[in-house]
């Protein structure tokens, strides 16, 4: 039922709106202040608790491995006799789509090359290149998807098998009991997931704007000015408010498929028209090193290294782990919804292996092209990358024929990725804030759209991608402590299951 004119103001909704609006206003009025405080908090947290964050990411990977090989693996996410809603190939395709974020478009070359710059000080160039790919895979691979996968598993298990809502408050009440303190903690979980989703998506909105404007400025040969920022930002706001105000049916899914298709075509194009065997060698070398060394690397912090290596480790690997935690309630709801009826075993194997393999392929192609430029050509890409991370992908495309077409396609795909994820975030936020209403009214969705826009504007004012990442990280720090509680809830409930 749609209740167009009636939105029940619950304490959760009121507090969530208040806190998000306050953060947005703070960022718009005093962006430097917000950025500086966030950077400070993140530095202190990463220095003191970096070990715990890595331990947790690895721990979640081991929980996932344990659950998929244990007797619990045969439990279905739904009643015992239910069938999966989607065919396995369709499901895997949707998992790829969940993993394909706008970040891949821009960090495909930039990230491996940045790691290479740090690592070549300690290793010879060949070793540094394969290590750089390894670190990129570590940041985007099994650990990332174990975080998403386990959170999604908790959501799916309690929603479909235990008949609760898809909110993070559900596991606590169901597995620990309905007490005053569990209800208070559960309420806090919902509030914190709203804030993490809102700030996280606003951050990715801002980063999308920066990246798209860099692309447009290069393509049209115009100045990369704040006027251009305003144009891109306003276009994006219009694009995501329309589908939030009125239902477009499967229109959003089609747009997101289109973005996915463009990105895939781009990868295939580069693989075919680029140095194909060189890239396949990069993929196979990177894959082997990753699969055999990934487990110990997940526990490695850079503590014994020099200060700037520690900084590098915190800015990338630790930051990514926090980032995956920040987005886990959002991506988790999506993955849970498409996975009803799967067994825990096939769920975990699908969710962790499929997107990781995709990332290995993706970064192998893009990173491989970056290394080809360094080792076989004049190495101009590395220089561009040192100056402007978000310009690297476009500089790479300029090396290839039809570059106007491919650069335009990249800009369109990036735009679609950002808009579709903001729309989906608007829905999810409205759903959580209304206590799990699967069909939140357009009015409340639009309110969340406006707040995402305001938060996005605040992030744009902050201006520096590094500071934007810090703000996202601060909003997600609570999840370092929420996720293990959810895992305990899941393990407690699984123990009550009657499995042979």
């Amino acid at each position: 039922m749609h209740h167009e004119d009636f939105v029940k103001i619950t304490p959760l909704l009121a507090v969530a709106l208040l806190v998000s609006t306050a953060i947005a206003l703070w960022g718009i009025i005093d962006p430097e202040g917000l950025g500086a405080i966030a950077a400070n908090i993140v530095a202190v947290q990463f220095n003191s608790r970096g070990w715990f964050i890595m331990l947790e990411a690895s721990g979640l990977l081991f929980v996932a491995i344990y659950l998929s090989i244990s007797r619990f693996g045969s439990i279905r996410l739904g009643p015992d006799d239910c069938e999966p809603e989607f065919s396995t190939p369709a499901w895997i395709a949707m998992l790829f789509a969940a993993g394909m974020r706008v970040g891949l478009l821009f960090y495909g070359v930039a990230e491996p090359l940045t790691h290479f710059d740090t690592l070549r000080r300690f290793f010879d160039d060949a070793d540094a290149a394969s290590f750089a790919l390894f670190i990129t895979y570590l940041n985007w691979g099994f650990h990332a998807w174990a975080i998403y996968g386990v959170v999604a598993l908790v959501i799916a298990y309690f929603a479909f098998r235990r008949g609760r809502t898809v909110l993070l408050s559900a596991p606590l009440i169901d597995a620990i009991g309905d007490h005053r303190w569990t209800r208070a903690l559960a309420w806090l979980f919902d509030l914190l997931s709203i804030i993490a989703i809102a700030v996280g998506l606003a951050g990715s909105l801002a980063m999308g704007v920066f990246q798209i404007q860099t692309g447009i400025a290069g393509l049209l040969d115009v100045e990369n000015s704040s006027f251009l920022t305003a144009v891109v930002f306003i276009a994006m706001c219009i694009a995501f408010v329309i589908p939030l105000r009125r239902d477009l049916g499967d229109g959003m899914a089609r747009l997101s498929n289109m973005a996915m298709l463009i990105a895939l075509s781009l990868m295939v194009y580069l693989l075919v028209f680029g140095p194909t065997s060189y890239l396949m060698n990069a993929i196979v070398t990177g894959f082997g090193r990753y699969v055999f060394d990934v487990l110990p690397a997940g526990f490695a912090t850079a503590e014994f290294m020099e200060n700037d290596v520690i900084d590098w480790f915190q800015n990338w690997t630790l930051n990514y782990m926090i980032w995956w935690l920040a987005w886990s309630p959002f991506v988790g709801v999506f993955i849970a919804r498409i996975s009803r009826g799967r067994t825990i075993r096939e769920f975990l194997i699908g969710v962790i292996a499929a997107p990781t393999l995709f990332s290995i392929f993706w970064f192998g192609v893009f990173g491989g092209l970056g290394f080809f430029d360094i080792f076989r050509l004049e190495g101009a890409l590395a220089e561009i990358n040192r100056n402007r991370l978000d310009a690297t992908t476009f500089a790479l495309l300029e090396h290839f024929p039809l570059d106007v077409l491919t650069r335009t396609a990249t800009i369109i795909a990036a735009f679609l990725f950002v808009v579709t994820s903001v729309v989906s975030a608007g829905f999810t936020l409205a759903m959580i804030a209304t206590g799990g209403d699967e069909n939140p009214s357009p009015r409340i969705r639009t309110v969340w759209g406006a707040i995402l826009g305001a938060l996005g504007l605040a992030m744009i004012f902050i201006g520096d991608i590094k500071l934007v990442r810090s703000v996202i990280a601060v909003s997600a720090i609570a999840f370092v402590f929420i996720v293990p509680v959810l895992v305990i809830c899941l393990l407690r409930s699984l123990k009550r299951e009657n499995v042979k």
Partner: peptide, 30 residues
């Protein structure tokens, strides 16, 4: 010195939190 106190305090909170997780896992089923 100030930084060290913060560092120790933040880590003690993590240890306490791990204790909380163990307590949570040991609670009787509802």
């Amino acid at each position: 010195m100030n930084g060290e106190i913060t560092d120790t305090a933040l880590n003690l909170i993590v240890f306490a939190y791990v204790g909380f997780l163990i307590w949570l896992a040991q609670r009787p089923q509802p």
